[in-house]
Nucleic acid binder design. Structure first.
Lengths: 192, 192
DNA sequence: CCAATATTGATACTCCCAGTATCGGATACG
DNA sequence: CGTATCCGATACTGGGAGTATCAATATTGG
């Protein structure tokens, strides 16, 4: 079952791993996805071959780095009302697009998702995890009677996640969180 | 003011223009954005240089082709109710993602928007035009009192356009138009 | 200690493709 | 005619991903 009977010879240097990852992370946030393998190796102070020994392709390398960048901690708000909590979640979701560097990287990452299913998978999973972690917000909202029972909560989350991604990707002005929350909770029909 | 005092020498052959455009369009829908200039020239039965005489770069060529592909006719529904009209608009917006070929191209196009501002501009403008053309739907809705006066209509449209693009880009299941319309009009709060 | 094996940085190579340059031939204008 | 531009064809340049090979070094089993 095991694929490692016993490792012989010289072992991979963990320090090299770290240097490469650090170099990729920095270059990625500084210059976006358009970086060359030579740059990575040079910036890490490491032989070019050592990079390819760890990642079969450039995509694999970027995939690994992007996975880490997406793994950010998201606070779960508890303001006392669903509207307040949602406002906070939407605001946090918008945060990525405020810093121009992160916005550029996010755009390119969403872009890469369009051509590489693995990147799409990465983002999808990351978003799903992230949203699942904010599920408590919805549960409290249901308990307080602020949310219609039986609501499609994925539709709710994807509506604002999609809005934010769409506007960000196309460089449109970001929406105001309060407007978004109002729209999500009460819709555009006149108050009855 | 004019930059063409008088054109000398042999004139560009319109037939060559047409052959190139046709070849690009077909290759684009058949294989997505990852096509080479040699393929375009060969498929058009045209010299490679003639392609570069018309487009300085591959991006320029794709931009031209994508602009035409985006220029599709969209019917403006008039079912008698805002809900019915909106349902139709959402359904039409989803159409692109039903054909797997078009979906792949759309994904790659949205992807390209993430790295090339000109593509983003193209999509943005196209979407804006398209939505403006459906403005009549909203106006009738306002007249019939089905829409709250003073609504941010761009927020409304971007909410569902974003949802559709987001789910499509990440290969998530497309939403049900009726669910979307219900959410947009009445929100997720309980009926008062 | 020793032999076998695998990693290290360095370098040179192949392959693909966008973009450029040049060719002889064709066509349009003056 | 003479010149300018287009035509298809072909060869070239340059950049970057991925591969191959090197001597040097490190690790482990015997």
């Amino acid at each position: 079952m095991s694929t490692s009977p016993t490792p012989r010879g010289r072992r991979p240097d963990p320090a090299v791993d770290a240097k490469i990852r650090a170099a990729v992370a920095e270059l990625l946030t500084r210059r976006g996805l358009e970086i060359t393998m030579d740059e990575v190796a040079a910036h890490a102070g490491v032989g070019r071959a050592s990079v390819f020994r760890r990642y079969a392709t450039k995509r694999d390398m970027l995939l690994d780095a992007l996975g880490q960048l997406l793994d950010v901690h998201v606070a779960i708000p508890d303001t006392g009302s669903l509207a307040g909590d949602l406002r906070q979640v939407v605001h946090d979701t918008l945060a990525v697009w405020r810093d121009e560097r992160l916005a550029t990287l996010s755009r390119q990452m969403l872009g890469e998702a369009g051509r590489d299913p693995r990147v799409a998978d990465l983002i999808r999973t990351s978003m799903r995890d992230r949203m699942t972690r904010t599920w408590a917000v919805y549960e409290r909202g249901l308990e307080r009677g602020e949310l219609r029972p039986g609501s499609d909560l994925w539709l709710l989350t994807d509506l604002f996640a999609g809005l934010v991604a769409y506007r960000g990707l196309l460089s449109l002005d970001p929406p105001d969180p309060d407007d978004v929350v109002r729209a999500l909770l009460h819709g555009f029909a006149p108050a009855p």
